[in-house]
Design a protein around this nucleic acid. Structure first.
Lengths: 185, 185
DNA sequence: ATCAGCATGTAAGGCGTTACATGATTCA
DNA sequence: TGAATCATGTAACGCCTTACATGCTGAT
């Protein structure tokens, strides 16, 4: 059972650009990355510890601060590990959408309930979409920067799919609109 | 820490229509449901056991078969539980797309690598899309059936988003096409 | 006869979340 | 002075996957 913790790759990917503390890493993940990956302190700090033991990252003493701040620096071995992962074509892409689950089984309750699920989803997506559009605007002027181009690609993925979600929400609302049909378990 | 095992709801949702064995449940999940939720034997059988203890489902003796087949039947309590979940608006929708993760950090490797990730993703989606279109064709003639309508909604969600994915793939390939730009860590 | 598929389950272990515990600093 | 945020971590627990273990049945 080979170790397959993706959070390690997220961390290595972030450290490839700059030394960061665990706290910084969390903030980065909570930004644009959260669209397709998540991480909590409870997964980040232990990952940093075990990666240090493996020699993928190393601690850097923080001279300046008064407050405890442990910066991590990626080692050559860490970079090799990151590259190997990036170059491996296979990737697992998983969706866990409870909204869809509820809708799938929604035939057992009345349509108003299903409709509520769709509307809640629509609101959630609308909010996130506007944030993504902000990110996009910031990245667009500088696509010559190789990193920005790649960030742009993932943001663009988010926008394209969220717009599709909203389109689907419209269709779903229309199909569910005929409230004369009521079905109770 | 309230129990929050969604697989229980998937099982209840399936059993709301017919008595099924654990093996049947697995097959159902591997079908259209797998688009937005997954389940393995290692999660299904234990879930059935614990739900039986809670009184949400009950075993039904299998008179006919020679082969061991344990059918599960949902109880009134199980139906109440399913309804309560369906009527609860809040839902967690999570995406874990390793492809996007690789792309996000792709600025550190050459573009050919990023391009390969996109192409692999495109192939995966194209294949799944044609399957979904098949499902759709089967459901379309009978949308008056409340269940079919709901299945249709989730299949339609898949098709709409997969089409958006493919549209994005085109954009991504174009943006990554300028192979003169090579960047190595 | 043999292999794929039917059918049930358990065991080990990884991954991750939430809550907790602790304390410093900044700003109103 | 008190709240928010910075900052690091641990503990308990839940959930899930993979691999294993077992045996039957039907088709070629």
């Amino acid at each position: 059972m080979a170790k397959d913790r993706k959070i390690d790759m997220v961390i290595l990917g972030l450290l490839a650009h700059e030394d960061l503390t665990g706290y910084d890493i969390k903030k980065r993940i909570d930004g644009a990355i959260s669209l397709f990956w998540k991480g909590s302190f409870g997964s980040i700090y232990p990952a940093l510890s075990s990666m240090e033991k493996e020699g993928l990252v190393e601690k850097k003493a923080d001279a300046t601060g008064k407050r405890e701040r442990i910066f991590y620096h990626v080692t050559d071995k860490g970079i090799d590990c990151l590259k190997a992962w990036l170059e491996d074509e296979k990737a697992t892409n998983d969706l866990k959408y409870e909204t869809l689950l509820k809708l799938h089984f929604g035939g057992s309750v009345d349509r108003a309930t299903s409709l509520k699920s769709v509307v809640a989803f629509e609101e959630e997506i609308t909010e996130k979409l506007s944030l993504l559009q902000l990110y996009k605007k910031n990245l667009e002027p500088d696509l010559d920067n190789e990193d920005h181009l790649h960030y742009y690609l993932t943001v663009s993925f988010g926008i394209t799919t969220y717009e599709a979600y909203l389109k689907w929400c419209e269709e779903a609302k229309k199909l569910l609109a005929h409230m004369d049909k009521i079905s109770i378990i």
